[in-house]
Write a protein that binds this DNA or RNA. Sequence first.
DNA 1: TGAAATTTTGGAGTGGTTGCAAGTTTTAAG
DNA 2: CTTAAAACTTGCAACCACTCCAAAATTTCA
Lengths: 217, 217
Amino acid sequence: MTSTAPQEGRRERKKRETRLRISDIATGLFLDRGFDAVTIAEIAEAADVSVNTVYNYFPTKEDLFFDRAEEVIDRPSRFVRERLPGQSAADAVLGRLRAEIEDRSVYAGVLEGYDAFMRCIHGAPSLLARLMLMQYRTAERLTETLAEETGDDPEDPMPQLVAGELVHISNQLFRGATRAVAAGMSPEQAAAAALGKLDTYEGLVSERFLKYAVRPG
Amino acid sequence: MTSTAPQEGRRERKKRETRLRISDIATGLFLDRGFDAVTIAEIAEAADVSVNTVYNYFPTKEDLFFDRAEEVIDRPSRFVRERLPGQSAADAVLGRLRAEIEDRSVYAGVLEGYDAFMRCIHGAPSLLARLMLMQYRTAERLTETLAEETGDDPEDPMPQLVAGELVHISNQLFRGATRAVAAGMSPEQAAAAALGKLDTYEGLVSERFLKYAVRPG
DNA sequence: TGAAATTTTGGAGTGGTTGCAAGTTTTAAG
DNA sequence: CTTAAAACTTGCAACCACTCCAAAATTTCA
């Protein structure tokens, strides 16, 4: 076996590497100097590829920053799809949220240094707008998922309202946590505050909401 | 009195007229042919001004479409500021929302022909992103307003959660209504559906939420 | 009437983005 | 190992949004 035909061809490996290199370099530059202050030509130069190659991998400049958008958009839907028997949609999403806060996951925004991302995003209107668009897509996707899981029509009030609520509270917690850390709070304090906020939220909604889309079994 | 010095000078009147002309022509072209298919140069040409003049009035192409953004962003805050003694924030916002639906107001999205706007928006990613950004700003503003009205800290959970909720439900109703009308439903049916959705929503949240920020008196 | 303030305009330039055709590398077949 | 096809990269030209600047043109007001 002379290693001439690896399971994953050289081509695909190189593509993956190139994509990652471009993305990493771009993100670094963005965080360092601000989104608008970095030019695509610069990124291409630093990654040692042509400008056109950058565009081969990323349709727009914003996509260079929000790599993994698909994963983020699908996240709450995945939580719901993976929920245990007896668990409702809210249980699944809010439960995972709680766990992430306690684990200091990136997705809860309670990590030291994560505020650099947020500062970068808030420094560029087009980035913030893109982030909001992602949240819209997330809610849209979750509405679909809830409709599929319950058999309700996606145009019905319940899937739309519950999806909107869950996405909305997730974002509130995330934003609150990153803001708190950015304001100098320790990750521990920020996490505690986020958990408190989550409790407050659960006190603001009804049982009917919390028990929507319970998985049978 | 030879009409040489009107209370509002010729200059200001002309400015207002020019701005309106540019905006109207732009909107017409956008709705006709799609946001991305219309160029600023075309708009300038049609409005009989130079490209630079367009930029004198509107910072970006998106601003040509979302004129009045400030009014939209301030709307829920205004409802809260204008609420009557004994009325809560939710009463004010949801009440006005109900009234607008019943009156078939533009702001409820139940007008025939309004779907042209939505189709245009959804046809251009940058427009949809901008709309989502506006919603973010709306919630941000309402959080501030609620904090001012209640004396709570803007970083506290309650103003943030209530503001987020109210903006979120407004948008849900608006989107649902425009979608329904776009799908062929009559404004009457769409309005009825929106009112039903609002009732459903009110059944999903607690008294504590509905009674937040009651105006004393 | 004339100077000052304001608006409009043209022109040159930057940067994101696209389309195309010509290289270059990788794969797969013989 | 050779070779042709497929896939990727690159350079080039062009379009458009947007900015900066300085020169008209217009309006205001003393």
